[in-house]
Amino acid sequence: MRVEFRLSGSGGQGLLLAGIVLAEAAILDDKNAVQTQSYGPEARGGSSKAEVVISDEDIDYPKATDPDYLLALTAESYKSYGPLMGKGLIIVDSSVPVSADIAARTVSVPILETARDKVGKKVVANIVALGVLGGLSKAATRTSLEAAVKSRVPKGTEELNVSALRAGFELAELAASQRGARKTQA
């Protein structure tokens, strides 16, 4: 089965790394995975988009065509990519106002807030988001996600990032209870 992810936000939020870790975790689970990206000239700010395709079969086309999951950490990315969503689920940060004009199923999750207040570091929002994506999609096992996080994050930050990932898993469980209930704020 082919599962497609689109991770969007602003440059510097670390979404590319989150995408890489997700793909790597899938490989640890013996699946195929491809990660692509698009980015602007800005190293910080600007828009940033990473895509991950995970499948048990060969992946001929590496980009998301009809994403199963869209992560939107900023209002801008929500507005850009939300309207393109069909069958998939939008996971939007709770700081972003949800719009009635965007029809796809949506859950609003306090990713940035959890990173800042519960984990204690704003910069790990990407890994919290990864935990949410992993937890909701089950495209990679938790064990593999943890292993992939440890291998890809800067040395000395493994513990912090694993706790961010676990906080994301918890948010996913909470959000799962929202599913079906459209556009509710968590």
């Binding site: 890489i20 793909a23 490989i27 195929n32 995975a33 491809v34 990660q35 692509t36 992946i59 590496p62």
Partner: peptide, 9 residues
């Protein structure tokens, strides 16, 4: 750019 930046297994 796609193949250069794409990551795969």
């Amino acid at each position: 750019e796609i193949i250069g930046h794409m990551r795969e297994k």
